[in-house]
Simulated assay, not measured.
Amino acid sequence: MPAFYSMNAIAQLLTQDAIVLTAKPVTKEALFAEAAKALGQRLGVSEAMIHDCLKMREQLGSTGLGQGVGIPHGRLKGLRQAAGMFYRLNTPIPFDAPDNRPVDLAFFLLVPEQSTEEHLQLLSELAQHFSDPELREKLRSSTEAVEVLTLFASNHV
């Protein structure tokens, strides 16, 4: 496994300003627009490019995992390194997840266009993290961004 993969790879993508605990969008489209704007500002990348990237991937099939979790993701031309944002929604939104449950936890993942292996590794790690019912519950009850960072950093699966 390449050196840049560690059990904390997900935590390394996050900073406190990349964690939103009171998101209020009422549709998947509104959530994507909000995340694209925030990611664009954080990364200095076009909001429209990010939004298009996320929407194009979603058209291939829902990025809803089930259990109230979504991992919208995509490979973005011109991006230099992987980036992520975590959203907890005040009200779960329809997401076309396999279990038909609405989503209230969403992790947005962007990787450089050529980073296929890294993309798959990070998605796998996210899926493992979110498969843990205890972690999902703690993410739903956390009141501070630093708590969320700690959860992602310490949750060894």
Rank of each mutant, 00 (worst) to 15 (best):
F86D: 02
Y87I: 09
L54A: 10
M85S: 10
L65M: 14
G44C: 11
A83Y: 02
E47L: 06
F86E: 01
M49N: 15
D99L: 01
T91N: 11
M85N: 04
R75A: 04
G78E: 06
P72S: 04
P94H: 03
Q81G: 13
R80G: 13
K77A: 13
L39Y: 01
D99P: 09
V45D: 03
R57E: 01
K77I: 12
Q59S: 11
L79F: 07
A82P: 14
Q67N: 13
G64I: 00
Q67L: 11
G64W: 00
Q67S: 11
L76T: 06
L76M: 09
Q81D: 15
I71Y: 05
V69Q: 06
R42I: 13
G70F: 05
V69N: 07
R57H: 10
E58M: 05
L60G: 12
L79K: 00
S46H: 06
S46Q: 11
P94Y: 01
P94G: 06
P72T: 06
M56K: 14
M56C: 09
D96T: 00
Q67A: 12
R75K: 15
S62C: 05
L65N: 03
N100D: 14
R75F: 08
V45A: 12
R101C: 10
T91D: 08
A83E: 09
N100M: 09
F95P: 00
G70Q: 09
V69L: 08
N90I: 09
Q81S: 15
G78A: 04
L43W: 03
E58T: 02
S46K: 05
G74W: 06
T91E: 09
E58K: 04
H73S: 12
